[in-house]
Write a protein that binds this DNA or RNA. Structure first.
Length: 427
RNA sequence: GGAGAGAUACCCAAGUGGCUGAAGGGGCGGGUUUGCUAAACCUGUAGUAGGGCAUAUUGCUCUAGCGAGGGUUCGAAUCCCUCUCUCUCCGCCA
């Protein structure tokens, strides 16, 4: 959410942002509703001031035993009270409507964000690693995984339906190895503090990080409860600090969290139906930062590097994409996606998404800090990034590390997590 | 799931409709005394949000705010209703 005063004074800028992003919000209604709201506030507060003054007087008169004089004022105040009630109700409606409008206005993109409508306008910032030349026809991870009996799509479909998969044997172990490897790197080399969050949250948390109200369809809601399954650990971890004023000594806060992630994938019918690229449930290691505004882009750079480190250690070729306005996401001011090379697709696929939300989430979730003990509270900047999506990493390893005989070499850095095992092969 | 107790400011805590503009204590800030520290005494201490007015670094003023949301009333921390969370006991459970 943006600052109310900022929106009021920058209507034209907001309109430009909406058009750059290729999205819409009821911005014309904003001015009208805001205006009316402020008029009502003035009127109702004027009446409340009168009421407070007169009520004090009534109290005094009663104590002095002048009941008749008091009674006279009480008569008059009855009318004022009715008026206040009426105006308060009206004001409430305008406040709610204004809030609805504010929740639909996306973040202002950073000046370095390329303007564009969709993914074709994203700009490649850098590439890393060498794409392997295969002396044979590389197989897709779903074929390899099935042949090695480490991925079982049929069982997943049988038990839960489409977009669910069983990992079996060394596949399950490799998944676990990846989680531990990534957590260890971020803990030991990047100074993050580990958090293991709840996988279900209530509505306020989904609102706080911006998944609601705009993206309700993307989330799984538990029927008969107020709980949502988290689409990312970003939601519980960011909301840990909701409605809190942090001390300067607390900052910066770096958290890394493993969680399962649940996504309805509404509107993705027919996309990536094979393999483990797009599942309703997947694992992810997520990095979340809370920082002072002055440092946020420096911290952002570090965060992206932290995610890249994982890919480099795994020796997986990737590229870094600067996401354009149309592909930025509602809450982000700037976003880099890391895309890993997948031989069977012959393209790069997103494996990490790193965003700087600046104060957009913080304002919504009311996460502030005090720069000095007596100073006014300011909003922190929140940042997060996958470090990395485990399922897609698994797919990338299976495909990039495959051998002609259908076995998979285990990346060196993972071998200590696999009891020293060097290959997964058919036996 | 059942029974009970609670939620007041940075912390502890008093407070049964108007003198609460929230007592008192602790902590923290300022001051007096003092060779330093300590102590004693005096004094300040609602952060925040939303309005309005003037300045345009800032200041003044109003409204809201005693877990949250409603209600009663001229007036609610106080009375009533709903909800959330915490604690104790019982039951169940990993």
């Amino acid at each position: 959410m943006l600052d109310l005063g900022f929106v009021r004074e920058n209507i034209d800028l907001i309109k430009k942002v909406l058009s750059d992003r290729g999205t819409e919000a009821p911005i014309d209604e904003f001015t009208e509703v805001d205006q009316k709201r402020r008029e009502l506030i003035q009127e109702v507060e004027r009446l409340k001031q009168i009421r407070n003054q007169e009520s004090t007087k009534i109290g005094q008169l009663k104590r002095e035993g002048k009941d008749e004089a008091a009674e006279k004022i009480i008569q008059k105040m009855g009318q004022v009270a009715d008026e206040i009630k009426e105006l308060d109700n009206e004001l409430k409606e305008y406040k709610e409507r204004l809030n609805e409008i504010m929740l639909q206005i996306p973040n202002i993109p950073h000046q370095d964000v390329p303007i564009g409508m969709d993914e074709s306008d994203n700009i490649c910032t850098r590439e890393w690693g060498e794409i392997r030349e295969f002396s044979f026809e590389p197989k897709a991870h779903w074929d390899l995984g099935t042949e090695l009996d480490i991925l079982d799509f049929q069982k997943g479909a049988k038990v839960s339906g489409a977009r669910f998969t069983f990992l079996k044997g060394l596949g399950a172990k490799l998944e676990r190895a990846l989680v531990n490897f990534m957590l260890d790197v971020h803990l030991n080399e990047h100074e993050y503090k580990e958090v293991f969050p709840p996988f279900m949250v209530h509505k306020d948390s989904m609102l706080g990080t911006g998944q609601l109200p705009k993206f309700e369809e993307d989330a799984f809601k538990i029927e008969g409860t107020d709980y949502y399954l988290i689409p990312t650990a970003e939601v519980p971890v960011t909301n840990m600090y909701r409605e809190q004023i942090l001390s300067i000594d607390d900052l910066p806060i770096y958290h890394v969290a493993y969680s399962a992630c649940f996504r309805a994938e509404a509107g993705a019918h027919g996309r990536d139906t094979r393999g483990i690229i797009r599942q309703h449930q997947f694992n992810k290691v997520e990095m979340v930062k809370f920082v002072e505004p002055e440092n946020s882009y420096e911290e952002f750079k570090k965060l992206v590097r932290n995610a890249e480190t994982i890919l480099q250690k795994l020796k997986l070729p990737y590229r870094v994409m600067n996401m354009c306005t149309g592909d930025l996401g509602f809450t982000a001011a700037k976003k880099y996606d890391l895309e890993v090379w997948l031989p069977s697709y012959n393209i790069y696929r997103e494996i990490s998404s790193c965003s700087n939300f600046e104060d957009f989430q913080a304002r919504r979730a009311e996460i502030r800090y005090r720069p000095e003990p007596e100073a006014n509270a300011r909003y922190v900047h929140t940042l997060n990034g996958s470090g990395l999506a485990i399922g897609r990493t698994m797919a990338a390893i299976i495909e990039n590390y495959q051998n002609e005989d259908g076995s998979i070499t285990i990346p060196e850095v993972l071998q200590p997590y696999m009891n020293g095992l060097e290959r997964i092969e058919n036996n």
